[in-house]
């Protein structure tokens, strides 16, 4: 099976040289569903940041979608990011844009046709049950609704990889369930690789998944 992520002797550190992840080895198969767990401050979000190139490896190698991220050029990194969908715990929606335009963002960046963009956004708004809110702005929505918008944005351009950083952290049951359903759907129907950083793995997940746990800068697979 193809590997979408391959890390070899990967060390991650912040600018103050504090090592967060120390010489880890792991890989993620294309089309798989992966959970990364760990205590607060263990480095799971840092690892996620490094996967989309926001933090460069200090040592070792990290290959994502065939792109080596150590010393990657900004144009190559942009190319890679155009094939990744990201969901943040704090949503990262553009406040001055409507919900509709926020979901359109990856489609605009990827140069999709206007009609395709419009259809895709309408479909996604239906999936996240926010069709009636399309013209509203992020700050007019609840936290759960904003996270559903972020989810729709992550799915909009049919990415090869979805990265979600505690996507249901502060959400109500209804929104949480909707988010999990969307991630399951993307994985099972579109064969999108999904990596979720979380404290709690949902009990009733309808897909097979791998579970990595980070502790003291090391990673190990939990069976």
């Amino acid at each position: 099976m193809d590997k979408v992520i391959m890390a070899q002797n990967l060390t991650l550190a912040y600018s103050n040289n504090e090592t967060i992840i120390n010489q880890i080895n792991f890989s993620v198969d294309s089309g798989s569903f992966v959970f990364i767990t760990g205590a607060s401050g263990s480095g799971k979000s840092t690892l996620l940041k490094s996967i989309f190139g926001a933090l460069k490896p200090k040592q070792g190698s990290l290959i994502v979608g065939g792109v080596e991220l150590k010393g990657v050029s900004s144009s190559k990194l942009n190319f890679l990011r155009r094939h990744i969908g990201i969901v943040f715990q704090d949503y990262k929606l553009v406040k001055e844009w409507s919900i509709e335009k926020n979901i359109m963002l990856p489609l605009i960046i990827n140069g999709y046709d206007k009609s395709v963009t419009q259809n895709q956004v309408e479909t996604l708004l239906k999936h996240v049950r926010l069709k009636h809110q399309a013209g509203k702005y992020p700050l007019e929505l609840s936290g759960g609704e904003q996270q559903r918008v972020a989810m729709a944005r992550a799915l909009a351009h049919n990415p090869i990889l979805i990265l979600a950083d505690e996507p249901t952290g502060n959400l109500d049951d209804y929104s949480s369930q909707l988010i999990w359903n969307l991630l399951e759907g993307a994985n099972s129907q579109l064969k999108t690789t999904v990596i979720v950083v979380t404290h709690h793995i949902p009990e009733s997940l309808g897909v097979e998944y791998k579970h990595f746990h980070i502790e003291y800068g090391s990673i190990h697979e939990v069976n």
Partner: peptide, 12 residues
């Protein structure tokens, strides 16, 4: 903020 978010999705 907008520029950073666009950068996360690979905007040149």
């Amino acid at each position: 903020e907008r520029m950073s978010i666009m950068g996360l999705f690979g905007a040149p």
